[in-house]
Amino acid sequence: MAMIETEGLVKVYHSRGSEVRALDGLDLEVREGTVLGLLGPNGAGKTTTVRILATLLRADAGRATIAGLDVARDAQAVRRLIGLSGQYAAIDENLTGRENLWMFGRLYQIGSAAAKRRATELLVQFDLENAGDRVAKTYSGGMRRRLDLAAALIGRPTLLFLDEPTTGLDPRSRLGMWDVIRGQVRAGTTVLLTTQYLEEADALADEIAVVDAGKIIARGTADELKTQVGGERIEIVVHDRDLLHRAAQVAAPDGSATVDEHTRRLTVTAEGGAQQLVDVVLRLGEAQIRVDDVGLRRPTLDDVFLALTGHAAERPATDDETTTARKKGR
């Protein structure tokens, strides 16, 4: 059964006479019990999609249902099913972690005693038990995000929205966050995750939908997308500019290497992974070509975008979706 279904969602923001089409006919389907990663650059329409599905924003056109309930008409019923954890940790800084969770539990219509028990449970689960009675103002960025996620889970939602859950976190906190999210997925929660990082979608999502300019432009498992993009890449910086083209020939005898004269950089797609890297390095050594740098790199969002759309992920700052959403909605 489809947990989320959207059809032709359109959202246009008006600001100072200019129009920004944040969503331009977005169709999406997420099956129950799966994790969908919504992947795209800033301004692609990820946050707008989440805000519409979480009943915070009304679409200008199109339809969206959650577990068969219309997000506009049955908003209150939808709210009973969802949990939302956003980019900005939406917690009350003047309450302790425990008080925050109790409050959100009460507002989720859980009884006071049950909300207290659930708060303690979540504090333990999210490794916040020692900080539970401290005011949230004193929390680190990672702790705030964990508390924010715990708050989203207070009512045991069947559908969890995670809007860029690790943006701005240091690598260690990011890994910690991933563990927590994985635990939630194991427990059977359906998750819609938005992210700018291919790596993150890869690590957490069953399926990835790539968004660009308010539309889904590709959809598939991480492996399917990577095949489309061409898997990992070997990058070599050649020391001597004169040897660049010879090096390209040596590294990829089939002529598939791309050459950047300016940076003296060769890029070769590497279906063979690390072993292919070893082979290439050996061949370059035999040909006595000096290299300054060599490495294996996973495809980035930019590679995906380049492969799918022919343009890079960065778009002009004029249609920065988050700014518009904040002005409109917060």
């Binding site: 979480a54 709210r79 939302l84 507002l107 989720y108 917060r330």
Partner: peptide
Amino acid sequence: DMTKGLIDRFRSLPMARSA
């Protein structure tokens, strides 16, 4: 509360809108 996203959180909860 608006700028910190707390109002959004409240609005996503199944609570009385007037509260």
